[in-house]
């Protein structure tokens, strides 16, 4: 799993590439949390275009980061979901807490 970060005005964009399961979740979670802490992050945006597999461990990762930024008044967005990942998001009710946007620009503007 490859994790790339971009920071725009205190918003953290996390681009994930690979398979998000229990095995990869631990490292991904640690890397994101470090970025959140070091950069005084407000909102977090997950770019999931490169995620070609995700199971319920991925739900845990997104829920955990949502809770972390929410404590400081931040919100969570997602962009570029495959139909497969979207299915998992829907099933788990993640869209009740996480907003889906068309692209990065829209996410940055509306969060």
């Amino acid at each position: 799993m490859l994790t790339k970060f971009e920071i725009i005005n205190n918003d953290l964009i996390v681009k994930l590439d690979g398979e998000l399961d229990h095995h990869t979740a631990k490292t991904v979670r640690e890397e994101i949390d470090r970025e959140i802490d070091e950069n005084n992050t407000k909102n977090i945006i997950f770019d999931l275009e490169g995620v070609h597999f995700m199971d319920s461990s991925g739900i845990g990762v997104v829920m955990g980061r949502y809770k972390k930024v929410q404590r400081l008044g931040g919100e969570t967005g997602v962009i570029n979901l495959s139909s497969r990942v979207e299915k998992i998001f829907k099933m788990s009710g993640l869209f009740n807490i996480v907003k889906k946007f068309e692209n990065k620009k829209e996410a940055l503007e509306r969060l």
């Binding site: 979670r29 199971d55 319920s56 845990g60 998992i88 099933m91 788990s92």
Partner: peptide, 22 residues
Amino acid sequence: EPLYTSRPELERSGMGFTVMET
């Protein structure tokens, strides 16, 4: 049950069986 986890300290979503059944 959806969202139930016996190990909340691990940041599990509790959705494993729900995913299997779906």
